[in-house]
Design a binder for these strands. Structure first.
Length: 424
DNA sequence: TCTGGGGTCCTAGGACCC
DNA sequence: TCTGGGGTCCTAGGACCC
């Protein structure tokens, strides 16, 4: 075997971030809520033990939360993003080849490390991240990404593993596959698990033993890759450079129902503006913009309306002014009075690199001027904080803005450095 | 009263072309 | 008895991930 991957995953990441900055919360149940304080999207182990479920609407867990004095936080993505960067930077000490897979996970290439004591090396990663950032992590090591994921999952479940599991020995791999339900395999979701159950395939070991033809037929080529990876045949390499996004979406549920066009226009202008800023950050321009609106599907007695409208842009752009303009046109075409709107969003698509935009001879827009204006806008907003300079269309009263009543301070970005925490 | 917000990839089927 | 067939593009829908 020549390939070896580690998957490092932060335990209960958002909950752990909150706990780092408030040591009183050690050993206490914590949950973190989604945008708008709607659903529970992270739970500390203590909260999991109380039976609080992932994705559960917060109001359904209200009794449990009150009874057991669960600490509740609105999500604070500024804090989590910064803590994530610190974790990733720390992991960079352990390999030159690292893929940041998500805000709380990274794959590390350990291809040349077969000579070492892998348990010890993985344990060192774990203790270093804990010491340098305060975040507890688990480490799975195996010959393929899919098996590393599986090892990581088991490392959290077993007390003996203590957050580190190395799967290189065939007997250990087989035992691990036997203990893993097929729906817990990376790439096998609920639907596939149901379907596979119909064929008598219940564990990862069962899945590993299906034929290629079966996998391709029922799980597509993606599933076939998964099956092969369970057999220790690597089909997925590390992605060292994050590819640019092909679509960018900004959408939110409203804090309260919105009925008027002008309020929807304000919200939509803000989402379009966020999309434009995200486009510029990856130096792309969009060829099309889509706006969608939704009423509250959970209120069955309300009249329902879901619709979207896409506008092809005459020239691809990342200008806030243009995107706000076209998003507004799309919205006006969509808007129907008489509904209580719960959510809207903007998607920009047909993205291409900024420097490969075809301009038209008849283009009425002074693109150089727009670009210089956007540079100044981005500079001001990065120095003084998001949305310090906006379009008038974005409004100032923001009655539609989401709720986040229990947000913690942005400890790491507001107070420069860690000194403040350590002296507390 | 109260139910998140992002993304990716694959496939099937229709339109259209020669 | 024998009904053309292959390629490409687009879209909607379905599956998955965190």
């Amino acid at each position: 075997m020549t390939n070896l991957f580690a998957l490092v995953d932060c335990n209960n990441f958002y909950a752990s971030c909150e706990r780092v900055f408030d040591p009183k919360l050690e050993g206490k149940p914590i949950v973190v809520l989604s945008n708008n304080d709607g659903c529970i999207i992270a739970r500390s182990n203590e909260a999991k033990a109380l039976g609080i479920k992932m994705g559960e609407p917060a109001f359904k867990a209200k009794d449990t939360i009150e009874q057991h004095n669960v600490h509740v936080f609105s999500s604070n993505y500024t804090l989590y993003g910064d803590m994530s960067a610190r974790v990733m930077q720390t992991l960079g000490q352990f390999t030159p080849n690292l893929e940041v897979y998500s805000i709380d996970e990274a794959f590390l290439d350990l291809g040349n490390f077969y000579g070492r004591d892998l348990n010890e090396y993985a344990g060192e990663m774990r203790s270093t991240v804990r010491a340098w950032t305060g975040i507890p992590v688990s480490v799975g090591v195996a010959p393929t990404k899919t098996l590393a994921k599986l090892a990581n999952r088991l490392s959290k479940k077993s007390k003996k593993a203590d957050g580190v599991l190395v799967l290189t020995d065939e007997r250990h791999i087989e035992e691990a596959l036997r203990r893993t339900e097929v729906g817990d395999v990376w790439g096998m979701g609920r639907r596939y698990a149901q379907k596979l159950a119909g064929f008598g395939i219940h564990t990862a070991l069962d899945l590993r033993n299906v034929s290629d033809a079966f996998a391709k037929k029922h799980l597509t080529v993606v599933g076939l890759r998964t099956v092969r990876e369970l057999r220790c045949e690597p089909c997925q390499d590390l992605e060292l450079v994050a590819p640019n996004k092909q679509n960018i979406c900004t959408s939110r549920s409203f804090g309260a129902s919105v009925t008027t066009l002008s309020q929807l226009q304000e919200a939509t202008a803000n989402y379009a503006s966020r999309c434009a800023a995200k486009l510029r950050r990856q130096q792309s321009c969009a060829g099309a913009v889509t706006v969608f609106v939704e009423t509250n599907r959970f209120r069955e007695t309300d009249a329902q309306y879901f619709n979207s409208r896409t506008i092809a842009l005459p020239t691809a752009t990342s200008s806030t002014l243009e995107l706000v303009h076209y998003a507004n046109l799309a919205l006006q075409a969509l808007y129907r009075p008489g509904y209580r709107y719960k959510k809207s969003g903007v998607i920009v698509s047909e993205l291409r690199p900024q420097n490969q935009v075809q301009t038209s001879l008849l283009d009425p827009v002074d693109r150089d001027k727009h670009q210089r204006l956007m540079q100044v806008l981005d500079k001001l907003n990065s120095t003084w904080g998001r949305d310090k300079v906006t379009c008038a269309a974005q409004g100032t009263t923001r009655p539609w803005q989401l709720k986040c009543e229990k947000k913690s301070p942005c400890y790491t970005t507001q107070f420069k450095g860690l000194l403040w925490i350590e002296t507390r």
